[in-house]
Nucleic acid binder design. Sequence first.
RNA 1: GAAGCAGGCCGGACGGUCGCCGUGCCGCAGUUGCGGUGCGGAGGAAAGUCGGGACUCCACAGGGCAGCGUAGCGGGUAACUCCCGUCCGCCGUGAGGCGAGGAUCAGAGCAACAGAGACGAGCCGGUUAAGUCCGGGUGAAACGGGCAAUCUCUACGCGGAGCAACACCAAAUAGGCAGACGACGACGCGGCCCGCCGAGUCUGCGGGUAGGUGGCUUGAGCGCCGCGGCAACGCGUCGCCCAGAGGAAUGACCGUCAUAGCCCGCAAGGGCCGUAACAGAAUCCCGCUUACAGGCUUGCUUCACAC
Length: 120
Amino acid sequence: MTRGARKEGLSRRHRFAGRGAFVSALRSPRKLRGASSILHVLAGRPGQSRFGLALPKRIARRAVDRNRMKRLAREAFRRHAVKAAGLDLVIAGRQPFSRNEESRWVAEVRGLLDRVAGER
RNA sequence: GAAGCAGGCCGGACGGUCGCCGUGCCGCAGUUGCGGUGCGGAGGAAAGUCGGGACUCCACAGGGCAGCGUAGCGGGUAACUCCCGUCCGCCGUGAGGCGAGGAUCAGAGCAACAGAGACGAGCCGGUUAAGUCCGGGUGAAACGGGCAAUCUCUACGCGGAGCAACACCAAAUAGGCAGACGACGACGCGGCCCGCCGAGUCUGCGGGUAGGUGGCUUGAGCGCCGCGGCAACGCGUCGCCCAGAGGAAUGACCGUCAUAGCCCGCAAGGGCCGUAACAGAAUCCCGCUUACAGGCUUGCUUCACAC
């Protein structure tokens, strides 16, 4: 069994597959509030956390900004220890995002992931 | 040299580490996969979705009406509301710019203010043989026309929906159809056989959802050169293959060098900042429109200076 993911990889195993796969995580009672977003947590497959983002157009009108947020958040998850915790994680954006907040957004995502990792 | 006009082009480069998507090869795994390695991986607008096509499915004898679109003339194109040439009108000293630029003896309609009267001819004053001639403050326009982006007429064009199109594969659940079995159940007055009904069980079939695959990137393609053409563009030789995701990859970090900006210096130069505007492919093309830090470049105009 060569299941072992590479140390810093982030492939499809760590994503949600299929339409509506987010829904169960979004309905989960475990939530962590950040400054501009909410992290939903649900128990998933052991050893492989999954990570997803729900960013409505309301938060970032332009496609570039939404892409940017996703990429930055994924990068944070990729390097984070929760990746092996076996949790389904979905970050739902709440507050509008503007372009000069990139570093703030990364810090927020890291903070949320730290809190989940610390809780267990 | 200073102002300006019209185009064309670029819109960081190189390297390293860690990742993501696609794909060729190799190895492992009876498949899904996993690992290694090579190669490819956002834009000039990918945007708005405004015109036009290709491609699918649906509809369709032929013709007309209605509706919509276009409008000097000629050309280009698969096609267009696009592009090129040219005429006319207006604007500009000029290079140039702008223009829905066919028709109002086929017909209808034309606001407000002013004015006696506004699309109909009459009215008022003077004059004459005679509606014969002259004038009428106003107003953009007053007897003669104007407006067709008001309807209309003429000519030409136009079927509808869209890749979430469409084609194929295909769980689970509910229901449909067919067949088999079928309770010590119902009916044939009772029992057995038999027939028939039958909850249910099994099998098969078809529709169909989730899901999957195809469509999906080689094309009105790109580059060089030659030829034809004032040009748009066309033809030909040779070379090239240039993203294909799918809740949606193209990212993060770090060096070096250049660019803009800022500071020091007479200068050579040094230092600071740290990649910068608009913005992220979604079936594919041709256009148009809109957004845009900074930079390169071609032709031309006017003015000034010099010879």
